[in-house]
Structures are given as C-alpha cells and as structure tokens.
Nucleic acid binder design. Structure first.
Lengths: 115, 115
DNA sequence: CCGCATCCTTATAGATACTG
DNA sequence: CAGTATCTATAAGGATGCGG
C-alpha cells in the first residue's frame, strides 16, 4: 500500500472500510462470529464459549448482526421451542477479514509486549 | 474457516482478533491510518483529508496510535517547528487488514442496499 | 497553523432482577 | 432456555476556546 495508490483512490477506500468497521464494531461481534463460524449454535452455547459476555449484550449483538445480515436466527418449534443461530453466506464472507485481523493481532501482541 | 479448525483452535483465535480490534477501534483510527499509508503528513493535512473530524479527536487518536506503535511523530524544530506523522513498520503491516476490510466493506454495502 | 484543555452530551457496556 | 427491563457506570465523541 505504500505509494501504490494515488490519493483519490486512497481516500475512496475510507468509506468501505468505515462501513466494514461499523458492521463488526463493539466488543463482542467478532467473538460471536468466530464462534458461529464453527457451527450453528444456541444462545446458551455461545454464552458459554465467550467468557464474561452478559445475556443482555449477547442478545443485543445478535440482533445487530441479524440486522446486518451476518447471522440468521432459526426457530424450530417442533415440541420444545429451539432457536439456532448460524452464519449467513454474507457472514461467512468475513472469513478473510477475521484471518487478517488474527494474523495481525498475533504480531501486534509481540510488538506491544516485547518492550 | 468452515469446519477447518477445531473448537479450541477457534476459541484461541478470539484473543488476537480482540487485540487487533482494540488497536484500531474508534471512529477515526482506520481513516487516519489510510491517510498516512500514502505519505507522511502534518496535522492539518490529515484534518483536511478526513471530513468532520475535530482537532480534539484527531489529536487524541494520533496519541493512541502512537502509544500502540502504529504511528510515529517526528518533530523538526529547524526554524519554525514542524511536526510530521508517519506510519511505523508495524503500522504499515496493517495493510492486509485494511485491504480485507475494504474488500468486504464493498460487498457489504451491496448486500445492505440491494435489500 | 498546530494542538491541547475544559466542559458537555450521547453511546456503549455492565449488574441485577425478572418473565414466558 | 432464551431472552427482556431497568438502572447505573464508563467510554466515546463533539463544541468551544486558548496558547505557542
């Protein structure tokens, strides 16, 4: 990215990047998405996998992720009602972002903690 | 990422991703980093390139980016004092993250607006 | 022109209790 | 189990003005 792009192109990147950040912002959205990237899960399972998240936050974040079409909520009311959360195709398309964040996060930790 | 990783591996990813998110969180950090990825800049230039940012926020975010070693602040006091901000190597290493966010952001906009 | 300090408002997150 | 309601604490962001 160093001098590969001209200035207008560079500035034009800001909006999509901002859009992306807004869709995954907050403390819990990525953890939730990572959980769901493995398998579809029920509310309580997600809460178990993510330390310290409260029901209120999990509920709130799930609704926002649904509004942004990253997560799908499915109700099975055969017998006892059961609700499952899963990624949409669009949610799965975050894969590259998550990998990039993960790789950078590992390096970042080294930089911050080595001195 | 779909069923390629086992559960413990998946959960272990959460921390580095959270670290990364924290380093670039807030409304303005990515826009600032994108600006600086083109060239080193002075305070006022950055403020001009990023619509609506206030001096207070720019100042605050720059200090946080410096603390996280993403941005370097250089003072030239030859004659009139001049201050330049530039990316560190570590800041430049965010390139892949920014590209991934950008690519996904473009698709996200399509998904959201096509209804 | 560059940037910080103060004050103020809004947004986000947490604790706790409670419901169908 | 899968949440909601209420209330409080903290963080993020904005307006404005000052000083080098």
């Amino acid at each position: 990215m160093e001098h590969l792009l001209d200035k207008p192109t560079q500035l034009a990147m800001i909006q999509p990047v901002t859009d992306a950040i807004y869709a995954i912002n907050g403390k819990w959205k990525l953890p939730i998405l990572i959980c769901l990237s493995f398998e579809k899960m029920r509310f309580g399972q997600i809460a178990n996998d993510i330390p310290n998240i409260t029901d209120r936050m999990l509920s709130k974040e799930l609704r926002e992720l649904e509004a942004n079409r990253l997560v799908k909520r499915t109700i099975f009311d055969s017998g006892p009602v059961k609700i499952e959360y899963s990624l949409t195709d669009h949610g799965r398309s975050l894969h590259d972002v998550i990998i990039a964040l993960h790789n950078w996060g590992v390096e970042h930790r080294k930089v911050i903690f080595k001195h």
